[in-house]
Design a protein around this nucleic acid. Structure first.
Lengths: 106, 106
DNA sequence: TTGATATGACACCATTTGGTGTCATATCGC
DNA sequence: GCGATATGACACCAAATGGTGTCATATCAA
């Protein structure tokens, strides 16, 4: 659980999960495209996601394909986050969300 | 949003949220009890939770009372986590459909 | 085979992080 | 007022983190 929270703490890593959510199974090279950091740094981020069990690896020849595993995220939602969702509090969040202009994900 | 993820990345900070969830409005001194680190370290953790808007402060005389604000957690659930739950549900539905109609090959 | 491609494995670096200890300040109870 | 208490404000430190660059290795394709 701690590894999942730590993996999710970095915006670059969350962006990788987002990109895999849009198109699953991308290679390391594909994930390097469109990001400003080196391949070395991307590899380190993906290893952290892999160790948190958020990403699974499938080798196809010399290509390393990355697949999103959303189950740890769901487990965090089930075991940890929902505890904090309580009637009136949840209603306040909903109200706040309605009042805000619809915005992009960060 | 990033501040919330970063604040949640540390197990000590998550334990403070848990303790405030059990009993809200605890003072700094109370939160220092039962944890092995110094008051200085506890203060730093609480400042991070405060900046992430996960904890609100109310001063009563010389006592600093801490109140849990679960709205950022709920917002993470609503805006970020449920996206991946939908993916998982869809994947499970696909699997179920394939198992029920193995002659189909999508 | 040979060269291009995809990735791993390191060594290295600067900054952030989580921690300590010390002194200062404000408030409470007597 | 005075001592005890509750906290802030720093300076300081070691380790973790996020990044780079370089060389090695395995695989594909002509």
């Amino acid at each position: 659980m701690d590894a999942v929270f730590k993996a999710l703490a970095d915006a670059t890593r969350r962006s990788f999960l987002d990109r895999l959510h849009v198109r699953d199974g991308q290679t390391l090279g594909e994930l390097c495209d469109g990001v400003e950091i080196t391949r070395s740094a991307v590899t380190k981020h993906l290893v952290i996601l892999e160790h948190a069990n958020l990403v699974s690896i499938v080798w196809v020849g010399r290509e390393k394909h990355h697949y999103l595993n959303p189950i740890p995220i769901t487990e965090i939602a089930d075991r940890w986050i929902r505890k904090y969702e309580r009637g009136r509090v949840r209603a306040l969040a909903d109200l706040k969300r309605r009042l805000e202009t619809p915005e992009e994900d960060p």
